Simulated scan of single mutants.
Amino acid sequence: MRDLMGMMKEMAGLKAKMEAMQAELDATLVEGRAGAGLVMVTLTAKGALRAVSIDPTLMKAEEKEILEDLIVAAHADARTRMESVIAEKTQGLMGGLPLPPGFKLPF
C-alpha cells in the first residue's frame, strides 16, 4: 500500500510539472526561415502561428508561387524546431522514464 501512495504523490507532482511545461511551451517562440531569411514564420512551441515576415522584394505578382512555397517551407522549418524544443523539454520532465520507441506525448 505504501508503494501505491508514493506512486500517487509522484503522479501528482508529474501533473504539476506537465502543467508548468504546457505554460512554458505556450510562451516559447520558435522561428522558421526560408529563402535565406526572406520569409520567416514564428510559432509558439505548441504550434500556434504568431507572425509571418516577408521581405518586400518578394511582393511581385510574378513571384506569387515562389512566395507561397517559401511560406510553406518556413512553416515546416519552424515546426521542426518546435518539435525539437518539445522533445528537449519533455526529456527533462520525464527524467529518464522508459518510454517505448516512437512514443510521443500529446503536446
Rank of each mutant, 00 (worst) to 15 (best):
L38E: 04
L38Y: 07
V39E: 00
V39I: 10
V39G: 01
V39K: 00
M40T: 12
M40A: 15
M40C: 14
M40F: 11
M40H: 12
V41L: 08
T42A: 12
T42K: 07
T42E: 13
T42H: 05
L43P: 00
L43M: 03
L43C: 09
L43S: 02
T44M: 06
T44Q: 07
T44N: 08
T44H: 06
T44D: 10
A45V: 02
A45M: 04
A45D: 01
A45R: 00
K46G: 09
K46N: 13
K46W: 06
A48G: 13
A48D: 11
A48P: 07
L49I: 13
R50T: 07
R50F: 10
R50L: 10
A51D: 15
A51E: 14
A51S: 15
V52F: 12
V52Y: 08
S53C: 08
S53L: 14
S53P: 00
I54T: 06
D55V: 03
D55T: 10
D55L: 07
D55Y: 00
P56K: 09
T57C: 13
T57V: 12
T57S: 15
L58H: 01
L58Q: 02
M59N: 15
K60P: 02
K60L: 12
K60F: 01
A61I: 07
A61C: 04
A61Q: 11
A61V: 06
A61W: 08
E62D: 14
E62A: 04
E63Y: 07
E63K: 11
K64N: 08
K64H: 11
I66M: 15
I66W: 06
I66N: 10
L67V: 08
L67N: 02
E68I: 07
E68Y: 07
D69K: 04
D69G: 11
D69P: 03
L70P: 00
I71K: 05
I71G: 03
I71R: 01
I71Y: 03
I71V: 15
V72F: 05
V72A: 15
V72R: 11
A73S: 14
A74M: 08
A74C: 12
A74E: 00
H75V: 13
A76K: 09
A76P: 09
A76W: 05
A76R: 14
A76H: 13
A76N: 15
A78L: 10
A78K: 01
A78S: 11
R79N: 09
R79T: 15
R79E: 11
R79Y: 10
R79S: 08
T80A: 15
R81I: 09
R81L: 12
M82Q: 07
M82P: 01
M82S: 06
E83N: 14
E83G: 05
S84P: 08
S84R: 15
S84D: 13
V85P: 01
V85M: 04
V85K: 03
V85D: 02
I86D: 00
A87G: 13
E88D: 14
E88H: 09
K89Q: 12
K89Y: 04
T90W: 05
Q91S: 15
Q91N: 14
Q91L: 07
G92V: 08
G92M: 13
G92L: 10
G92I: 04
L93F: 08
L93I: 03
L93H: 04
L93T: 02
L93W: 02
M94C: 06
M94D: 07
